[in-house]
């Protein structure tokens, strides 16, 4: 009943019959989801609140493992293996699949140390290498010009939009394959939002991107593929232009025309 298209590109991630159940819940929050995620493109997840889009996003880097008692079933394939396996090295996985959150999460340290944090965790100590890569990441996140003269300042002194770009710099500094964005602009003003959206589009040349958004226009503006979720199921996955113009499923049609949500 769900209509999932085949994608042209190679897959960065492949979700198959994936189910996720929160601790103590009687029924799974995500039901039998099968979904390809295209490499070097942007896949948006939309749907009314509670539909499971954030839950799905947080499964890709096994964020749910921070809270014991949650269970996964099915398969998420990444780099030829099932990352839901018990043997999966979560530290390694999370350096390969980075995440940007709903609110900017600048760590209580300097701008430089924020960006260098992930690299230091990987054991990079060489000062020139660190500062080269910090500079590159900040440039890629389009924030270098604003902070180059105050790298040693506390990151919490930056504005919300700047902090969010700092977080993006921090995430790309460790050179991940995939970046997960969880409603990254929900706490930002329209101008900062525009800046983040432009940045997300630029980034897809280097990473595969999945973005959860409550804002359909945002999905339409930035993404190549869009998945519509409802009550824990993936109802439809299609090329963004087609999905918004000629949805195949009635539920999708009703949602994008604002009949519910």
């Amino acid at each position: 009943m769900a209509s999932i298209i085949d994608i042209k590109e190679e897959c960065a991630l492949h979700v198959r019959d994936f189910e996720f159940t929160y601790k103590g819940a009687e029924s799974p929050s995500l039901k039998k989801i099968t979904m390809p995620i295209a490499k070097h493109s942007i896949t948006a997840l939309i749907g009314p609140s509670g539909c499971g889009k954030t839950t799905l996003l947080r499964s890709f880097n096994r964020m749910h493992d921070l809270y014991p008692g949650n269970t996964y079933a099915g398969e998420i394939e990444f780099e030829g293996r099932n990352i839901l396996s018990d043997k999966e090295d979560l530290i390694h996985l999370r350096t390969k699949i980075g995440m940007i959150f709903q609110k900017p999460t600048a760590f209580p340290m300097s701008i430089f140390d924020n960006v260098a944090y992930g690299m230091r965790l990987q054991g990079i100590k060489n000062k020139t290498e660190l500062s080269d890569r910090v500079e590159k990441a900040l440039k890629d996140a389009a924030i270098w010009k604003e902070v180059s003269d105050r790298l040693k300042h506390d990151a919490n002194g930056l504005s919300g939009g700047q902090q969010q770009r700092l977080c993006i710099a921090r995430a790309i500094a460790v050179e991940p394959e995939v970046l997960l964005f969880d409603e990254p602009t929900s706490a930002l003003d329209p101008i900062s939002t525009q800046g983040i959206e432009r940045l997300v589009i630029e980034l897809k040349e280097r990473v595969s991107i999945i973005i959860v958004t409550h804002n359909m226009q945002q999905a339409a503006r930035v993404s190549d593929y869009t998945g519509f979720m409802y009550l824990g199921e993936l109802i439809e996955l299609g090329e963004t232009e087609k999905l918004f113009v000629t949805p195949k499923e009635k539920l999708t049609q009703e949602y994008i025309t604002g009949k519910f949500g």
Binding site: I91, H92, L121, Q122, G123, I124
Partner: peptide, 9 residues
């Protein structure tokens, strides 16, 4: 031992 292994330890 790699840096990550050391961190885990």
């Amino acid at each position: 031992m790699t840096a990550v292994q050391k961190r885990v330890l």
